[in-house]
Computed example of a mutant assay.
Amino acid sequence: MGSSVTPPLFFISYAHDPFGDDDQHVDRFYRDLNHDVLMFAGSRDETAGFCDASLRLGQRWSRTLVDNLSTAQVFIPILSPKYFQSEACGKEWSVFASRLDEDARPESQDSSIIPLLWIPMTVPAIAQPYQFKETSFGAKYEEVKLRALIREGRHGDDYKSFVQKLAQRVFQHATAVPVAATAARPGFDEILSAFTSMPAPRPSAGNGAAKVRHSNRRSSSLVDRPILNANLPEDPR
């Protein structure tokens, strides 16, 4: 008999695409990752993680989203230029990062955020302390990034391998180095975006590889403390 897991083991954070089909690709990725995490957990549950595929522009955060963000063990931001322009994505980052700030274990801070590149791009400083260049996820992911990996049928085997490796890492980390849940359940207006006043990232030339700035999370967190910018358009996703 399969075991059960205490969800959410992971939380996918991404910027919605109301004018294209990227939401469908993210939803497929979430379902595939959810399946493989449950496989590693040996669980017959239906859900191991969380990804809000229904929230649209103009909507406030749902209580379910806040509860999952406040208890998830691994935070998976899908990085794109639009992601760093989204006030809601910046607030999701803030909520999870604040939980890590309260956790004194360096291993939780180093591995509890797993950024994934949606397209080739220059990664802003706030994300550079985390390991976003993942050779262990496969050469094809390093070459084309997640969006193309999902979209291009000829990369089917590479995509499946990528999801399985990511799922294994999520499960191992979520069960070995759990991050304490927070009792606070803030509303949308109560949270400060981590991306406020940050310059928008630019798509990079060539393969988009960016240099990783070697710094620890504690030192970077001092400059990542934002103040709310009233001039930002309301963009919950």
Results as ranks from 00 to 15, higher is better:
S161P: 00
P7K: 10
D52S: 09
H16Q: 14
S111F: 08
S215P: 00
P81T: 11
L69I: 08
T182K: 10
F19Y: 15
R56M: 08
T122Y: 08
L166P: 05
F10Q: 06
S112D: 00
A125S: 13
S161R: 13
L116R: 05
P199I: 09
A184M: 12
P115K: 00
V144Q: 01
S4M: 09
H214Y: 09
T182V: 10
F19G: 00
T122N: 14
S221I: 05
D17T: 07
F75H: 03
G156E: 13
S220E: 09
H214P: 02
A209C: 03
S86F: 02
L9H: 11
D17N: 15
I114F: 05
A97Y: 02
A41H: 03
I76D: 02
A139P: 03
S94F: 01
T196Y: 08
E142K: 01
P226V: 06
S4G: 04
S221E: 07
V177E: 02
G138D: 05
Q73N: 07
H25R: 14
V163M: 06
R105F: 05
F132E: 02
D27M: 12
L33W: 01
Q24Y: 06
L33M: 04
E234I: 07
L228R: 11
Q109V: 00
V179C: 02
Y30D: 09
S13M: 03
P106C: 06
Y14H: 12
R218A: 12
